[in-house]
Structures are given as C-alpha cells and as structure tokens.
Write a protein that binds this DNA or RNA. Structure first.
Lengths: 238, 238
DNA sequence: TAGATTGTTAATCGATTAACAATC
DNA sequence: TAGATTGTTAATCGATTAACAATC
C-alpha cells in the first residue's frame, strides 16, 4: 500500500483558506524586506496583513517550521519559502484574451512581472484590434491560441471578453491545453475536472458591499430603506 | 427586554457565505427571465450557478419561503426578493478614484447600471487628467471628494489608484462619509469599525491558480517543478 | 392520489482562535 | 536565567451536505 502523505511539513494538503492567504503574506514580507527589515514576529506580520496572529502561525505551520521561537521569522527566508510553496520563484507565462478596456488595463498592469507572471500574448477576435500594440505586445487573432499555448507552454489564461464569448473562449483554452483560468467575464464557466477557474466579478463585489451598506442605514427593524441613498427607481436586471 | 431578532424570514443575520452567493443567484435568475423562463426548481438554479442544490435551498431559506413545494420558484418573484434583500432594487451612487487604465475600464463597465449601481463621479489627483472626459463623465480633482460625497449622498467608493496612494484615498473617503470601499490597489487598507472594505487583487488570484497549477505538474512527491512551464528565473518580489 | 420539490434537520466537515508547552 | 515567541492543541464556530418530512 502507498505511504501516507505527510500531514505537515513542506508537503501536501494545504487548506484552501490558507492557500488564499499565502499571497497576502508574500506581499507583506516583500514590503518589509524593501523597508530593510530583516526579522519579524507573527504579530508583526499579522498586523501588516490584517490577519489574527494565531491563524497566521497555523497557516505557516502547514509549510514547515521556518521560524525561531523567541525570535520570529527571517523575512527573506520566509518570503522565499512562501514563494516556493505557491510556485512563483519563476515566472508563469500567461495569455490574455479580450483586449477591450479591461484587457488593456490587465496588459498594462506592471505588478504581474514581479509577482511571478509574464504576459506572453494578447488575443482578440476582432480584426480591427489586430493593428494595435498594447503594452509592447501585438494584439493577435484568437485563432492563434493553440499555437501560442503550445509554443510558449502556457498553463494559465485570463478571460476579459464580454460575457457571451466567455464560454467559447474557455472551451478553446481548455482544448489547447490551458488548465487554469482567471475569468473576468460575468458568467459561470463550465470546465472539465482538472481545470481550475477563478472568477473576479465587479458587480458581485459591489452588491456584497451594498447588502451591508443597506443594513447600516437601518440598524433597527427590517425592511427599512438605507439612509445614505440617492437616485431614482430603476429596473434591476442584475 | 428586547424581542429576539427573527432567526429566519425576511429579517436579520444572513451568513456571509450566503450573502456572497446571493448576487450569483440574482444574475442567474435574470438570465432565466431573459430566456422567458417563468419557473425554476432549486436543481435548475443550482445547475446554472454551479452550487449544490441543498446549499442553494438553505441559502434561500434565510430570506424566507419564496418557493412552492412540488413546483419550484417563480423566477421573477424570487429575483425581486433577492434584489430587495441585497438592496439593489434602486441604484446606489458610486464614485471611482484613480482614473488610470483600470479606472477607465471600470468607468466604462456597462454592467453597473443594470445591477444596482450608478457611477456619479470620477476623481483623479493628476491635473493633466482633468481635461479628459471618460464614459461621458468629467475627471474631477480629488479635492472635490467631500463635496461630491456630500451632495450626491455617496456611500460606496472604488479605489483604483496606485498602491502608494490607496491608504490616503481611503482615509479621505472615510472622513467624507463613505462607509463601503472596493479596493483594487494591492494594499491592505486600515479603516475604522463600521467601514467595510472588499479587495480585488489580480496577482493574488493568479498566485492561487499558480499554486494549484504547480501541484498538477507534479502529482507524485513534493518539490517537483511543474512541467507546463517556460521562462527564465526571475527575482520574485511579490 | 402519485409525483415532485421545497424547507429543515442533523451529521459532518473545515476554519478560526485562545491558550500554552516547547524552546530559542 | 528571564523574556519572548513559535508551533500545536483543543475548543469553538460557521459552512456544507445528505436525507427526508412537509406539502404543493
């Protein structure tokens, strides 16, 4: 029978909630390093990231024991260990499909490179966009997807198309070998097992804020309209 | 002694995980309505949103009993009830601060209006941007923040500035009366109690995908480099 | 009535957190 | 040694889900 996977240490099975926080710690450690700080305690890092320090220590314990009791963590060492765990000690090639307003913004985002990603191609189905040059890259026909993914060994794709196109783009991405998708289109994508999709949705974030905002306006009793409110009635079509 | 808050019904205390899914249901119901579908079961809606149907029914049960056993849910009625619960039966006025690439994209995003939001002002600290007109709105000096928030009764602000400016912008927003912030800048904001902040972070989403991608590359044993990988070593500074 | 589907229960699972022994 | 801080335990909390009685 196969050996048990290690329950801890630089091994497997980090909880999803922890995985989602590791990039936050990584960013904070980089900021500390840039300020010339060589060592920090779990309290320091917790304060910088807005996380409970016990939770932070538990999170780090899934990676291994990289701290020193009574002293704290070596900033650079811990930063490297987290980067290694996430898998961003080298750059991942990424493509962006859909070079409208949002695609432009994503292509020009300078933070990718220093955080483990490199935009290797921009694609768009509209021929009139193929004349453009965005962030130093040509906008290429969508049909070149398979070639690009194959040649550059791309595993991660970003969808910034309108909602109607998103499922088709995702299908083509999956068929071409992409196994991780970051979706900015407001649609639920269906993909086969083994393909990861994460979704960023503007309206949903705002609606979550609106829910809480509404509650603030009327702290007592239900059904109350929020006070901080202007504007006319409008057909909500979410 | 005060009466107990209702544990269910059109009242208080919807779990956060449920609140985050309500906008997803709302969008799916709108899509069903546009397709002319009048009634749907929890299975239908679950399939459309990628949520377990038991979870969906439990989520809806926090709002009240809006379904009919043996029949399902009236699409339009349920849609309205969810919109009311979220608080988007009318438009919320929203301002965007920082009109760079991303701010442009957000200002031009057409989905806001139909989902309960109305962009009432664009602000930027750089004087050279004050000549511009974006999405039919003038880009106004950041100093006008207080006046705009006050006059338009703005409760929700969007930060699309560079990271260094974000905390200052947040402080000014809070001082001017804003109590909900959607933050696109890659910084942890500190705000007083009673102010809600939600964060959208590109690099973090990609890093979470990278973590799982790395695991796919090496299904057995730890420490393996992912296979689908190109590019050179680069200093990761997260 | 028979079939369908909701709303709810209760079991389970995963995440959070205070507390503290281990140890630098 | 005394003080500090990690790594871990165990209690608690919240979220998920299968199952099913209620009921259309």
């Amino acid at each position: 029978m196969p050996a048990e996977a290690p329950s801890r240490g630089p091994g497997r099975d980090i909880p999803e909630a922890t995985v989602a926080r590791l990039p936050v710690y990584l960013r904070a450690l980089t900021a500390l390093e840039e300020r010339g700080i060589g060592t920090c305690s779990s309290e320091d890092l917790a304060a910088a990231t807005g996380v409970n320090s016990a939770k932070l220590r538990k999170d780090l314990s899934y990676l291994g024991s990289y701290g020193t009791r009574g002293v704290g963590y070596d900033v650079d060492y811990l930063r490297y260990q987290i980067a290694r765990e996430i898998g961003v000690t080298q750059d991942w090639p990424v493509i962006i499909v859909g070079i409208g307003n949002l695609g432009h913004a994503l292509a020009n985002y300078s933070g990718f490179r220093s955080r483990g990603f490199r935009v290797v191609a921009l694609l768009d189905a509209a021929p009139e966009r193929h004349r453009e040059q965005v962030a130093g890259l040509p906008v290429r026909p969508f049909d070149e997807l398979e070639d690009i993914v194959d040649q550059q060994q791309v595993a991660i794709g970003v969808i910034a198309t309108p909602a109607v196109a998103a499922q088709d783009v995702a299908d083509r991405m999956v068929a071409s070998g992409i196994t991780s998708i970051l979706n900015f289109a407001p649609t639920v994508l269906s993909v086969p097992d083994g393909v990861d999709v994460r979704k960023v949705d503007l309206s949903i974030e705002l609606q979550i804020l609106a829910y809480h905002e509404q509650r603030k306006g009327a702290p007592e009793e239900g059904g109350q309209r929020p006070s901080r409110r202007a504007g006319t009635a409008a057909g909500v079509t979410a």
